[in-house]
Simulated assay, not measured.
Amino acid sequence: MSITKEEVLNAFRFRHACKEFDSARKIPDYEFAFILETGRLSPSSYGFEPWQLVVLQDPVIREKLRANTWGAQKTLPTASHFVLLLARTQEALTPESDHIQHIIRDVQQLPPENAAGKTSVYRKFLETDFGLLGSERAVWDWAGKQAYIALGNMMTAAAMIGIDSCPIEGFEHVPVERVLQEEGIADGERLRLVSMVAFGYRVREPRSKTRRPIEEIVTWL
């Protein structure tokens, strides 16, 4: 690897929740393709990729979301690229669902006996290991936690090439979901919004980053 540890740490120091972007500057297509690829390559439980990414460039839909997205009042109109992170629901993540079986058979290309075994292990995980089945909110939250792995990886990758970002949870879920359904972006049944993230170039430098010292957050046993 040609990247040094200090370069990686500098990317984390550079990254901040950028609340307003330079609307005149657009991220080149090849740079944003790189950011999306880091999301695509992100890990997920069982490799089931329970997320969907929607790159929202339509200014009309952005403005519709803005009415109920208090955490993106300046980022929605100024971001070069705006991404919606959708997570699959319980209906879409049961062991026999189309999505799970598509991943097992078509993406992971497991032979029939291995596919059956993985389906069985996954069912046990949902039913007893984590006790998720039977709670739609629990399954959706589990999928959303994994979507955040892709979110973090994309923001770090962006920072490493000098691109700013801002993760956004500041929105009213019901009216925002209504807009997404009206626009055909999410059906509200198999895919639901868990977070948003804006990308672009800062218009001003942020204040110094503050974090707890490592001794306060890490315990060695």
Rank of each mutant, 00 (worst) to 15 (best):
V8T: 04
A17T: 13
W70D: 02
G152E: 06
Q90M: 12
K64A: 09
L56D: 13
R25Y: 02
T4I: 06
D98A: 13
A33P: 00
Q109M: 12
P28L: 07
V8A: 04
V60C: 09
L133R: 08
H173V: 15
G200H: 05
R190C: 13
M1V: 09
T128D: 15
K19W: 02
G131A: 07
L151I: 02
S23Y: 03
A147N: 04
Q109T: 12
W140P: 00
G131K: 06
V107K: 10
P28C: 09
E49H: 10
E216M: 08
E172I: 08
R204L: 01
S80M: 03
Q52Y: 03
R211D: 02
A158N: 00
Y148H: 13
E215A: 13
E31H: 09
E189G: 13
G162Q: 00
Q101V: 06
P95N: 05
S135V: 04
L84E: 03
E31G: 00
E215N: 13
Q90T: 10
E113H: 11
A159N: 00
T69N: 04
G162R: 00
P28A: 10
D106V: 11
K209E: 02
L110W: 10
E7Y: 06
G200Q: 06
G117I: 04
E91S: 12
W142N: 09
Q181W: 02
E31Q: 14
Y46D: 12
W51S: 15
S80C: 04
L85A: 05
I61E: 05
L132N: 01
Y46N: 10
E177C: 11
Q146L: 10
K118W: 13
G184K: 09
F199T: 04
V8N: 00
A72Y: 05
L151C: 08
E183I: 05
